[in-house]
C-alpha cells in the first residue's frame, strides 16, 4: 500500500529524526512510503488564528499533493486532526471540493492510530529501555481518539515500563500561537505538566506531537532539568532517537 508521509512542519524543521522514525515504522509495517516534496504545512496555525483564506489555500495544496495515495499518515495528532476534523468545515460551501476533502480526511491518520488500527503492528523495531510517561496531546486525544494506541505500541517494547502521570490528558499549554501571545500562562501550564511528568520519575516523557514536546522540553530545561529525555513516540518505537 502506498502511504504518503505528512512530515509536519515542526518535524521538518526541528526534529527530522521523527519523520525518519515514522518512515521506518511504516516500512516495517509493509508500506511503500512516499514523501511529497512540495509539502509545507497543513494550515492549522492560520486556521486557529482566524486566517481562513490562508487555511483554505493550504488545505487545497495538501489535497492536491496527497489525494492520490492510499493513506496519508502524520506523526502528529494536531496535523492529523486538522485534516480529519477541520478540513471538511473549511469547504462546507464548496460541495465539489468537499467531496474530495472528505475522501482525503477519511484516509488520513495519526501515526500511532495508523500503526495499530490499519497496519495492526505486532512488533516494532525499537529497543528503548527505561521507564516512560506518556503525555496525551489534546488534538490527538479529543479529535482522533488517540489514547490506547500509543500505549499498545509501547507495550510491544519489552524494555519499556510505562508509568502514567497525573493529569496526562490536561493541555501542556502549547496551543500554537497561544504560547507566544500568552507566554506567562502558557509557561505555567507547561510547568504544571513538567511537575506531573517528573513526579513519575520516568527516564523519558513521550508524546505524539512535537508542538507539545518542544514546549515541555523547553520548560524542563529552563527548570534546570537537563537529564530527562523528551521523545516523540515514533523515535521510541523506531529506535532512531538521533537525527
Amino acid at each position: 500500500m502506498r502511504v504518503a508521509l505528512f512530515v509536519t512542519c515542526l518535524a521538518d524543521l526541528m526534529k527530522p529524526g521523527v519523520a525518519f522514525a515514522a518512515i521506518r515504522l511504516l516500512e516495517h509495517g509493509g508500506c511503500t512510503v512516499e514523501v511529497p516534496q512540495a509539502q509545507t504545512c497543513c494550515g492549522q496555525p492560520a486556521y486557529n488564528s482566524g486566517d481562513r483564506a490562508t487555511a483554505i489555500a493550504l488545505a487545497r495544496k495538501v489535497l492536491d499533493e496527497f489525494e492520490g495515495f492510499d493513506y496519508v499518515v502524520a506523526p502528529s495528532g494536531s496535523c492529523g486532526g486538522m485534516v480529519r476534523a477541520h478540513y471538511p468545515e473549511l469547504f462546507r460551501d464548496d460541495p465539489a471540493t468537499l467531496k474530495r476533502i472528505e475522501g482525503l480526511a477519511s484516509r488520513t491518520y495519526e501515526l500511532t492510530d495508523f500503526l495499530v488500527n490499519v497496519l495492526k503492528l505486532e512488533s516494532v523495531p525499537g529497543d528503548f529501555k527505561g521507564t516512560v510517561t506518556y503525555h496525551d496531546s489534546c488534538s490527538g486525544l479529543r479529535e482522533l481518539n488517540v489514547k490506547a494506541q500509543p500505549r499498545a505500541l509501547l507495550a510491544l517494547l519489552p524494555g519499556v515500563t510505562l508509568t502514567e502521570m497525573n493529569e496526562a490528558e490536561t493541555c501542556c499549554g502549547f496551543g500554537g500561537t497561544f504560547s507566544l501571545k500568552f507566554g506567562e500562562v502558557s509557561t505555567q501550564l507547561a510547568d504544571n505538566k513538567c511537575g506531573h511528568a517528573c513526579a513519575t520519575g520516568a527516564d523519558a516523557i513521550v508524546g505524539g506531537d512535537l508542538g507539545c514536546l518542544l514546549n515541555i522540553e523547553g520548560r524542563l530545561r529552563r527548570r534546570g532539568d537537563l537529564k530527562s529525555q523528551v521523545l516523540h513516540i515514533a523515535e521510541v518505537l523506531a529506535g532512531e532517537t538521533e537525527g
Binding site: 512530515v7 518535524a11 521538518d12 524543521l13 526541528m14 526534529k15 527530522p16 519523520a19 525518519f20 514523501v35 516534496q37 504560547s179 507566544l180 501571545k181 500568552f182 507566554g183 506567562e184 502558557s186 509557561t187 505555567q188 507547561a190 510547568d191 518542544l214 514546549n215 522540553e217 523547553g218 520548560r219 530545561r221 529552563r222 523528551v230 537525527g243
Partner: peptide, 24 residues
C-alpha cells in the same frame, strides 16, 4: 520575535538541517 515563548522556556535548538534536505 517570540519572546513570549522563551521568557519562561529554553527552546531546544534544531540540528541545523531540515528533514527534506536530509531525506533528499
Amino acid at each position: 520575535l517570540a519572546s513570549g515563548w522563551s521568557d519562561g522556556r529554553d527552546f531546544p535548538a534544531p540540528a541545523g538541517r531540515t528533514f527534506r534536505e536530509l531525506y533528499k
